[in-house]
Amino acid sequence: MKQQLIQLEINNQLYEIPVTPRDLLVDVIRKKVGITGTKKGCGEGDCGACTVLMDGAPVLSCLTLAITCQGRKIITIEGLADEQGALHPIQQSFLDHGAVQCGFCTPGMILTTKALLDKNPHPDQTSIKRGIAGNICRCTGYKKIVEAIGAAADRIATREVK
């Protein structure tokens, strides 16, 4: 199948990548770009592990054709820490609250959280739960994740006040 070049901005870096129409975004990110924080838990849109942010919206990269992403801005989990390597407050909060166990859901969970807090900086518990309901975690029982998200929202709010 003929390959065609597409431009993707991933984590603020521009990539020109040859793809065929059938290539899925998750595979392009993992195999062609070579950053593997984006996980494949089900390949069917049911677990949320492959979530990336596309122009700020959380999307399932396992159900997204890469060719449809021409010119889009994508943020993966690798793009969340700042340039100096300091953790994003959501990442720090997940760490501090014990919201990480096996870590396989973590990238998708953190990115979905990022999209949630961008839209709703002060979510109540129900909004948090609704926001991440499409991200399956089998280890933590979710409690610490919900707590971590609440604390991250507070942390971001405080940081922005400063």
């Binding site: 949320g48 979530t51 159900l63």
Partner: peptide
């Protein structure tokens, strides 16, 4: 619309 799928599914 609120009940459909997940945040990600609704975004897509």
């Amino acid at each position: 619309a609120r009940e459909l799928g997940s945040t990600q599914v609704r975004a897509m």
